[in-house]
Design a protein around this nucleic acid. Structure first.
Lengths: 290, 290
DNA sequence: TTTTTTTTGAAGATATTTCTTCACTCCACA
DNA sequence: TGTGGAGTGAAGAAATATCTTCAAAAAAAA
C-alpha cells in the first residue's frame, strides 16, 4: 500500500522535481508547517496554498495515494507516531544526522550567536543606522575587508537596487583616496571589519570621519578599532566550531537592515521595486496574485 | 467566540461531570491520544470510541462549538501551537526591541528557515559533498549568479586557503567556455543558483555535467532546474519578511561545509595556513593583536 | 514569432460527511 | 410491574467535501 518507512515529507522532497509550479507551491505549504497544514479539508488546504482543489487532488495522486482522504489518513498516522514518540527530540537540528555531527554542533553555535548578538543589540543603534541609510540625500559608501568583502558586496548588491547614490569601495583598491574626495559631510560610510582587523580599513575610517561622514560599522563581538570613529556599531558573535569565524549573524543583521531600509524608502523605491517585481515575474515561480 | 486560553482538553475535563455515559466514553478516546484521535472524520471518531455519530455531534455542541468542523478546527489550531518549535517561538530575540519590530520578526523567520532546512537535509548529501571537496586530486570550480556571487566569493575565499586547485568562475564573465575546457572528469563544480534561476547557470551546469564533473548545488527550497544535473543538492529555505530573499541558511551550510572540509584536509591545510600567516605578518596588513 | 503541449482552475457530478429526527432502550422510582 | 424521562443510535436529509471534466491560460517547442 504505502511504504511505511518513508514519510510524506520525504516523499514530497523526492517527487519535488516532478511537480509543477502550482503543485510545488502546495508542497511548500504542506512542508512549511508540517504536518498540521495538511490536515484541513482539501478546500482549506488548497485555499491556504493559493491553488485550486484539483491541484491538490492531482498532487496527492502523483504521490501515489488514491485520493486526498488516504493521503490525509497517512498524515495523521505520521503525526500520531511523532506525537507519541517519547523521545521527541528537539535537541538536534539535522534530525537525520548523528548527535555529534558537525551539522548539529555548528548550528547550535550559530543559534547561540544569534541569540546573544540580538540580546546585546540596542534597537536604537539599529533604527538610527537604517534611517541614515534611508536618507536619499546622503550618499552611501560601502567598504569591506579581505573576508568581509563578500558581505560588503552582498549589501551593495541590494542597496543598489533599493536606492541611488550607493558606491562599493573595492577593498583591494589603491584608489581609496579618489573615492574619499567625493565623500561629503553627512554621507554614510558602511564599514565591515572583523578580526583580524585591517590597518587600511582603520585608516579609511579615520579619513572618512575627518570628512564628516557618518560611519556605520559591522564588526565582531570584540569590536574593531574602527569603532572609535563609528557613529553606530553592530557587533555579532562569530565563534563556531571551526578554524574560521562565522559571518552568519552579520549577514542576518545585514539582511534585516536591507528589509528595514527598503520599507523606510518605499515611496522612493517603489518604481525600482516594480522593475524588480517584473524580474521576479520572469521566474514564473509564483502567480502574481493570491 | 471560543475562549482562546482554554484548551479543548481542559474543557473536556471541566464538562466531564455533565457528560453522559457514551459521551464520557468518547471524551476518554479523545483525551487518550490527544489531540490526534480527534482529527478523523466524525464517523471515524465515533467508530473508534464505539459510539454513534450523533453522540459526537451532541457532545461537541455541549462543549460550546457550533458543530464538529469547528471543534476540529480548534483542535488543529492547538496542535499547531503544540507542534511548532518552542525555540522558534521565543517571544523576542532582541529583547530591547518591541515585539513586532523587524529585528524580531526577521529573526523568527530565519530561525524557522534554519530549522526546516536542516530537518530536510540528508546527512549523506552533506558528507559526500564534503568528501568530494576534500579530495586533493579533484579541481574545484565555483560559480554564482547575480545575487549569489557574493556567496560564491565567500566560499572561494575560504576554499582557496584550505586547498589548491580552486577556481572562481566569475558570474558575469563570458569566458565560461574557457574555464570549462579545463574541467576534467571527476572535478567538482560548485554551483549557486537561487530564484530567479539563471539560464546561463543552467547551461553551465549542463556543459559541466557532460564533461563528467561532479556537481554540488546550493539552491533554495524550490530547487533550481540545475538540480537535475547535480550530484548533490543542498537546498535552503529563503523566505523572510522582506522584499528580498534570505541567504542566511545557505551561508550556514557553506560555513559548515568549510569547517568539515577543513577538518578532512587538515594535514594538507596546516602548512598552507602557516605560510599564509607568515605572509600576512610580513605585509603588516593586519593588526597583530586584538 | 506561431504552434503544440502542458498546466491550471471553474463548474458541475459524485461521494462523503455532518446533522437532525425519531423510535427504541435503559434505568430510577412509584 | 408499570411509567416517565433521559440517553442512544439507525436512518435519512442537508451540507460539504472530493473528484472529474473541459476550456482557457501558460509554458515549451518549433
Amino acid at each position: 500500500m504505502t511504504a511505511p518507512s518513508e514519510t510524506i515529507a520525504e516523499r514530497l522532497y523526492r517527487y519535488f522535481d516532478a511537480l509543477t509550479r502550482a503543485e510545488r507551491q502546495l508542497a511548500d505549504l504542506i512542508l512549511e508547517n508540517y504536518p498540521v497544514s495538511g490536515l484541513g479539508s482539501i478546500t482549506t488546504v488548497a485555499e491556504n496554498a493559493g491553488v485550486s482543489t484539483p491541484t491538490v487532488a492531482r498532487m496527492v495522486q502523483k504521490l501515489g495515494y488514491t485520493g486526498f482522504p488516504e493521503f490525509q489518513a497517512e498524515l495523521r498516522r505520521e503525526l500520531e507516531a511523532k506525537i507519541s514518540d517519547p523521545i521527541a527530540k528537539r535537541d538536534s537540528w539535522a534530525e537525520k544526522a548523528p548527535d555529534g555531527h558537525i551539522l548539529n554542533r555548528f548550528t547550535d553555535a550559530v543559534i547561540g550567536n544569534i541569540r546573544q548578538s540580538l540580546a546585546q543589540l540596542e534597537t536604537e543603534t539599529f533604527d538610527q543606522s537604517c534611517r541614515l541609510l534611508a536618507a536619499p540625500q546622503r550618499a552611501v559608501y560601502i567598504v569591506g575587508g579581505r573576508i568581509t568583502r563578500a558581505l560588503a558586496d552582498y549589501f551593495f548588491l541590494h542597496m543598489q537596487v533599493i536606492r541611488s547614490g550607493v558606491t562599493h569601495i573595492q577593498s583591494n583598491s589603491n584608489t581609496w583616496p579618489h573615492y574619499l574626495l567625493d565623500v561629503r559631510e553627512g554621507d554614510v560610510l558602511v564599514i565591515f571589519d572583523v578580526r583580524r582587523y585591517e590597518n587600511s580599513t582603520l585608516k579609511l575610517a579615520e579619513m572618512g570621519a575627518r570628512q564628516g561622514a557618518k560611519i556605520i560599522l559591522f564588526t565582531d563581538q570584540w569590536r574593531s578599532p574602527v569603532s572609535k570613529y563609528a557613529d553606530h556599531c553592530l557587533s555579532s558573535r562569530i565563534i563556531v566550531p571551526s578554524a574560521w569565524d562565522s559571518s552568519v549573524v552579520t549577514l542576518l543583521f545585514l539582511e534585516t537592515v536591507i528589509a528595514a531600509v527598503q520599507e523606510l524608502m518605499w515611496d522612493e523605491t517603489r518604481l525600482r521595486m516594480e522593475a524588480l517585481e517584473d524580474m521576479f515575474d520572469q521566474t514564473r515561480m509564483f502567480r502574481k496574485f493570491t
